[in-house]
Design a binder for these strands. Structure first.
Lengths: 157, 157
DNA sequence: GTAGATCTACTCGGATACGTAGTGTCCGAGTATTGTCGG
DNA sequence: CCGACAATACTCGGACACTACGTATCCGAGTAGATCTAC
């Protein structure tokens, strides 16, 4: 899985902690975790295309959350970064070569693909069941002082 | 996800349908689905290292299943091909840069990693819950004539 | 003093290189078969 | 005729190239604010 997913998730949480008052630039978000700024910007663009964050150009521009954390699921973020394709994609090798039978035989889904698809469905269900707000709550339980420290840092300069 | 997973799963099913009587060469298994023989061989080696199939060299050599299909889970095959690493790996960016606080703060697992880990656990559970025999049964229901056709083809030459 | 236009500085957005991991291929190590030789 | 031995052909196993995607970067398009000018 792409490393950008982790960056996107943390950036969304950071945006929420900063508050909806103002937009935050990609460079500033990147600096907070020492990430390559231009590359994080690229990923934030993906979030913008997916409607998870909104972006404005120019001075005082930057990114901000498009909606509340409890209306953003992990699935939304993963899909925005990784794309909509399934991890396991069936190439229908059962229909290739001497093993291929009547085309009518292959009306039903490949049993292998079906089994892998069930597992991936379980993954996606779990991702869709968890919102970023759930993650935020757990994070605040673990490190109650982190949000305030973050706000302090982003307020400076 | 690697394409070799699909090849490995189908190859295991094919080995089961052929029967435990004799070993089958990678070249023959590859030809049945028009796959690159040398590359499939490489993947079958991974299955052999994982103890899913056994391999013998020389004439009349080849691969055969190391145990019955109902004792091989999808998880076994995926782990053998893809490796044991998790898809989402936390790089602990929360500890990098100005955002880092006291090291003691990070005793607990990263909330983001935890959430992603729960989803991946659901995926792995589903993979471990399904055996190749389950897949075989569904495949035979969909295409009852396929196994016999396969045996016929592998018997020739 | 104020309104308007212009100019500037700053940010996102997409087009452009680089690196690594997956994909594909090749040749050597090892073994069962087969043919041959000796008893 | 039978057994042992050597030659042989065939297969797995790992080492060696190629390709594609993810990673990283840079410069242009667009905008909000500041500055300057004219009234």
């Amino acid at each position: 899985m792409s490393e950008g997913v982790e960056w996107a998730l943390h950036s969304c949480l950071n945006l929420a902690w900063i508050g909806p008052g103002r937009a935050v630039t990609a460079a500033r978000l990147a600096a907070y975790h020492e990430l390559p700024a231009a590359y994080l910007n690229k990923r934030l663009q993906a979030l913008a295309r997916a409607g998870i964050v909104t972006s404005v150009s120019g001075p005082k521009g930057g990114f901000r959350l498009a909606r509340a954390l409890d209306r953003i699921t992990l699935m939304d973020v993963v899909t925005a970064i990784e794309g909509p394709d399934e991890a396991f994609r069936c190439t229908e090798i059962r229909q290739q070569g001497p093993g291929a039978g009547h085309p009518r035989t292959y009306a039903a889904e490949c049993a292998v693909a079906g089994a892998m698809g069930r597992a991936e469905l379980a993954w996606r269900r779990e991702l869709a069941a968890q919102t970023l707000d759930d993650v935020r709550q757990r994070a605040e339980l673990q490190a109650p002082t982190a949000p305030e420290r973050l706000r302090r840092w982003f307020a400076n300069a």
